[in-house]
Amino acid sequence: MKAREAKHGTVKITAAPHVRTADSTTRIMWSVVLSLLPVVGASIWIFGPSALLVLVASIAGCLLTERLFGERGNSLADGSAMITGLLLGLCLPAGFPLWMAFLGGVFGIGFGKIVFGGLGQNIFNPALLGRAFLQAAFPVAITTWPVRSADWWALRGDNFALPFMSPGASDAITGATPLGNVKFGDDPVITPLFDLFLGNISGSLGETSALLILLGGIYLAIRGHLNWHIPVSILVSVFAFSGLFYLLGLSPFSPGFMLFSGGLMLGAWYMATDMVTSPVTNSGCWIFGVSIGLLVVIIRIWGGLPEGVMYAILLMNALVPFINRATQPRKFGSASDKSEPAAEKGS
């Protein structure tokens, strides 16, 4: 079955079709990486060298694990481990100890992907699984959010903490995220929407600029490298449900605030759209997206955590096989017939 590459002067005998689209899995993966570069740049601009260090550590964890345990020899080349590393790094705080970020990458690829059989076989988004592991293992470190510092070169936390040592007291200034602020703050402050949109807030690396994530996502949608049904249904669902609860007086969050705060943008455009862990049918994608949106709203308003995007997506990842089964395409020839023939119109 493996295509034999013909050298000059040899004849190819292959099965039809003999032509293929230029799109390839490898190209899709690397274009996702490309579209994330502005977000990476913004996180470094906001959080300084710490952001770069955290990203490098999580990427290193992912690539190394893929290289050592990946089944196919060249599985690094397909770019999927790179995406996992990038996305994991982007949902960590800047002051996160590097060894933890590295460990998150190892867990995400190792237990999130390779134990299932590698690319295409995993049930959960590997980056989110890595983050869920870190959240469970290091709940304090992962919720220590640095704010913008006057000195760009200063580390935003104890990045170089040694494994299993309690992080030293850091002189970086930390602050609550906009979501945490509203939910748990003594003196709730609603962060202005415009700041949320541009990213002038505290939060994890990639949580900060909704604008750049939106641009990257739209680029991918235009190229056909992500299924736009998923982000659109998630965002519409979050807006609708949070608006409903806001109007009913059950929620302190306005729908606009809900859309642009926390990890929703990154989750909707980059995490939930992971092709491997999302439904294959468009109708399935609507069910998937709307459910994620509803879960996010419920967790944010009534849950014990300030943010719910990660668990909402992971939960729905687990249900994808069932969604796929429930949304099989209808059999051709089973539609109710239209009696009016279209033929006469054109001639």
Binding site: K2, A3, R4, G120, Q121, S278, V280
Partner: peptide, 10 residues
């Protein structure tokens, strides 16, 4: 012809 990769359920 390009290499065959695993299905990514796109």
């Amino acid at each position: 012809r390009q290499d065959i990769l695993p299905c990514i359920r796109c």
